[in-house]
Amino acid sequence: NQESVVAAQLIPINTALTLVMMTTRVVSPTGIPAEDIPRLISMQVNQVVPMGTTLMPDMVKGYA
């Protein structure tokens, strides 16, 4: 089963992602794949992401 990127903390809107903000977990439905974490660093979220929420492609500016 593929791991997806999950918020390790509350991420406010327009925050640039850092490694410490993200963790990985096997979730359903699947979100952004864990191997894309290096690509996500410094990208901004376009909404508030509560802790434990799976990051979906449409939540990250410039990802999709």
Rank of each mutant, 00 (worst) to 15 (best):
M21L: 12
M56I: 14
P57L: 03
V5S: 02
A64W: 03
I37K: 14
K61N: 10
L55F: 10
S42M: 05
S42P: 02
I37P: 00
S42E: 10
A34D: 07
S42L: 03
L17M: 07
P29M: 07
V27I: 06
A64T: 15
M56C: 14
M56K: 14
G52W: 14
I41D: 03
K61Q: 07
Q9P: 01
V5T: 05
V26H: 05
T30D: 11
S4K: 02
L55M: 13
V45D: 00
E35M: 12
T15C: 04
K61H: 07
T23V: 12
P29T: 11
E35S: 13
T24H: 14
M56A: 13
V48P: 11
N14M: 06
Q47W: 04
V45Q: 00
P50G: 11
I11Q: 00
L55H: 01
T54I: 11
M22T: 03
T18K: 12
L10A: 10
I37V: 13
V26W: 06
V26Y: 07
A16D: 06
V6D: 00
V20Q: 06
L19Q: 13
G62P: 04
N1H: 08
L40H: 00
Q2A: 15
Y63M: 12
R25Y: 15
Q9F: 03
L55S: 01
G52S: 11
A8M: 14
T18R: 04
P38S: 07
V60R: 01
T53R: 11
V49N: 00
M59Y: 07
Y63A: 06
R25H: 11
V49Y: 01
T15L: 03
P33A: 11
G31P: 00
V48Q: 14
I37E: 03
R25M: 15
T18G: 05
M59I: 11
P12T: 10
A7R: 02
P29D: 14
P33Y: 09
M51T: 04
T53D: 11
V20S: 10
E3Q: 04
T54C: 09
E35F: 08
S4G: 04
I37R: 13
T23E: 14
Q2Y: 12
T30Y: 13
D36W: 10
P50F: 13
P38D: 05
S28E: 15
I37W: 04
S42N: 05
Q44K: 07
D58W: 10
L40Y: 02
Q2G: 15
L10N: 13
A7W: 02
P50N: 14
L10C: 15
R39T: 09
Q2H: 05
V48T: 13
V27W: 02
V6I: 07
I13G: 09
S42T: 05
I13E: 15
N14G: 07
